[in-house]
Computed example of a mutant assay.
Amino acid sequence: MDWRTWDKQTRIVVSIAGLGGVYYVAHLEQIPETGRIRFMDMSPKTEAQLAIESRKELLREFGGKILPHNHPLTRHIRRVVVNILDANDLGILMGEPEMPSQSYIPPAAFGGGQSDDIWNPDAAPSTTGGLNPENVKNTREWNLIVVNDDSVKNAMATYGNIIVFTGILPICKDEQGLSAVLGHEMGHVVLRHASERASSVKVLLIVASLLEILGLDFGISRLATTFLLELPNSRTQELEADRVGLRMMARACYDPRASPDMFERLGKLENSKGRLNMDFLYTHPTSMTRIKRLGEALPEAFEIRASSPACSNTERQFDAFSKSFDNFSDRLGIFFR
């Protein structure tokens, strides 16, 4: 087909598509932790600026509910974060700003005869981790915000800002479960998922604009991009963060079994709220999918923990691993029925 016979509109679309294709290919990269190829055009410098702006916005949004840095819960959560950062050489947790003292009644579900280490921030940590400035190589700065809101059963991390809502603590149940949640959320930051999503949005906007120029139905194309690109990519990121978070908590000497256990409890909560067991409808995989994937990854996590000299003083390294794994498999079968 002769270029000269194309109308002006078609030439514009083809030119933009061609230049965009070159730009896209030039910004493909492989994720070191997972090997997946992705498009990424956001620089670390931009991410650093976004981290500052994000923290300011979070403090404005949750300022009245943020627990002070010397609150027992905050101190305990900080200790788990520091263990994970230190064991994985991810950087340093910065000090929190002074906030007004608040009274806080721990949710009753957090007890129930389980380990009470969460209520004693000064207790000997269950891991042998802990910040040792002499061994820190990565000086990346992280921040922690603990939000006193039992109605929000969530935690998140964006550009190095970690936000934990107190409503997630009953699901965590103890320090081991807390390490699973924090490992997952910090995994998103390590994998730069927020920047990947921002980069992908640019591509989707350009594609949508080109389709509109060509007169194609944007409603259909939007539906297609949602179910064929956005939601699958989001679920992929969640499973990646699960796997990387599992490795990170294992290096910090936490029990890897706590991760599928935590998602089992989360799954029961999801089921009680009527979530459908259909991954393709959601940004997050179902807990059943995540439990299955984490179960498959447990041997690798146990190997990571067993190979770490820092973990030599934790519970006798999985002499009962095969029994535990069999028990986990039995529980998984019950959960799926």
Rank of each mutant, 00 (worst) to 15 (best):
F39Y: 13
M40H: 04
M40T: 07
M42L: 15
S43K: 09
S43F: 10
P44M: 06
E47K: 05
E47S: 11
A48F: 01
L50T: 02
A51D: 05
A51C: 06
I52Y: 05
R55N: 04
E57N: 12
L58F: 09
R60M: 12
E61K: 14
E61L: 14
G64E: 09
G64P: 00
G64T: 13
G64M: 05
L67K: 02
P68Q: 06
N70H: 10
L73H: 02
T74E: 10
T74L: 13
H76C: 03
H76G: 08
I77P: 01
R78I: 05
R78E: 13
R78D: 11
R79A: 13
R79K: 15
V81T: 11
N83A: 14
L85F: 13
D86H: 07
D86K: 03
N88Q: 07
G91E: 10
G91F: 01
I92G: 03
I92V: 15
L93F: 05
M94F: 00
G95I: 07
E96V: 03
P97C: 06
E98P: 04
M99F: 00
Q102W: 05
Q102K: 13
Y104A: 00
Y104S: 01
I105N: 12
P107N: 12
A108H: 04
F110N: 05
F110V: 06
G111T: 12
G112K: 12
G112E: 14
S115F: 06
D116G: 14
D117Y: 14
P121S: 08
A123H: 09
P125K: 07
P125I: 02
G130Q: 07
N132F: 00
N135A: 12
K137R: 14
N138D: 10
N138I: 11
N138Y: 00
T139W: 07
T139I: 01
E141S: 00
E141M: 08
N143F: 06
I145R: 02
D150L: 15
S151N: 12
S151W: 01
V152R: 07
V152S: 10
A155S: 09
A157L: 08
A157K: 11
A157H: 11
Y159H: 15
G160C: 11
N161C: 03
N161F: 06
V164P: 03
F165P: 01
L169N: 03
P170R: 11
D174F: 08
